[in-house]
Computed example of a mutant assay.
Amino acid sequence: MLQDASIAEKARPALAFAFGPFGIEKLFAAADTARLKQACRMPGELPIGDFSTAAARQILADAEILVTGWGCPMIDAAVLDTAPKLRLIAHAAGSVKHFVAPEVFERGVVVTNAADANAVPVAEFTLAAILFANKQVFRFRRDYTSKRSFIGVSQQYEGDAGNWEKRVGIIGASRIGRRVIELLRPFGIEILLHDPLVDASEARRMGATLVPLDELMKSCDTISIHAPLLASTRGMIDAGMLARMPDGATLINTARGGIVDSAALEAELVSGRLWAILDVTEPETPPVDSPLYTLENVLMTPHIAGAIGCERHRLGRLVVEEIERYLAGEPLRHSVTIEGLLHQA
Rank of each mutant, 00 (worst) to 15 (best):
Q3M: 14
A5C: 13
K10T: 04
A14F: 01
A18R: 02
G23C: 02
T33P: 00
R35S: 09
Q38A: 15
R41A: 05
G44P: 04
L46R: 08
D50T: 02
A54V: 03
G69K: 09
W70V: 03
P73H: 00
D76Y: 03
D76E: 05
V79G: 05
T82N: 11
A83Y: 02
P84Y: 10
H91W: 07
A92Y: 04
E106T: 07
V109D: 03
A114H: 02
D116C: 01
A119L: 06
A119E: 10
I130L: 08
N134T: 14
F140L: 14
Y144V: 13
Y144D: 10
T145C: 11
Q155W: 08
D160A: 15
A161V: 10
G162K: 10
W164Y: 12
V168L: 09
G177I: 10
I181W: 01
L184R: 04
G188N: 11
I189F: 08
L192A: 04
A200K: 06
M206T: 07
V211D: 06
E215K: 12
M217P: 05
T222Q: 09
H226T: 03
P228I: 14
L229I: 00
A231N: 06
M241E: 14
D247I: 06
G248C: 13
L251T: 08
T254V: 14
G257C: 08
G258W: 06
G258V: 05
A264Y: 12
E268Y: 07
G272L: 00
L274A: 07
W275P: 00
V280E: 06
P283A: 11
T285N: 07
P286K: 10
S290V: 04
Y293G: 11
A305M: 11
A307G: 02
I308L: 14
R314K: 12
A328Q: 06
E330S: 03
P331Y: 10
L332A: 02
I338Q: 07
L341Y: 05
H343P: 00
